[in-house]
């Protein structure tokens, strides 16, 4: 028994060092936001989005400090004129995950009418 408890202790110690190493090496958070130079308006509602893809709902926590935590990898969003289709964080458990953003493809404005001199209304 003593033997196995000793092994259990050693295993825990080993796990701890792994966790510590991961903790030190990994940014735990990823922030993806607009280019701060492009001011569109003041920050608005904060939403929390569940894993699995359900609808995002108002985040009950209001805390301006959350946007400025240490160990946060920071990324700047591109300008997608028609909006963002989705954001893929590849290998999210790595220190600097890849962030891949897919823009919405702009589509037709609607069914146009031809103008006599060329062009569409």
């Amino acid at each position: 028994m003593g033997d196995s408890s000793e092994r259990g202790h050693m295993r825990r110690a080993w796990l701890c060092s792994v966790v510590l190493a991961v903790g030190l090496g990994c940014a735990r958070h990823v922030w993806i936001g607009r280019d701060p130079k492009q001011f569109i308006g003041p920050a608005g509602t904060t939403l929390r989005c569940p894993a699995g893809g359900g609808a995002c709902t108002t985040d009950p926590v209001v805390d301006a400090a959350r946007w400025n935590q240490s160990r946060t990898a920071r990324y700047q969003l591109p300008q997608c004129p028609a909006g963002i289709e989705g954001i893929l964080i590849e290998n999210a458990d790595c220190p600097e995950p890849n962030v891949v953003v897919q823009c919405v493809e702009p589509g037709p404005d609607g069914l146009g009418t031809m103008l006599a001199d060329g062009g569409v209304r």
């Binding site: 037709p108 069914l111 031809m114 006599a116 569409v120």
Partner: peptide, 8 residues
């Protein structure tokens, strides 16, 4: 190239 218009 995504314009759509009815022909006059």
């Amino acid at each position: 190239f995504h314009q759509v218009a009815t022909v006059e």
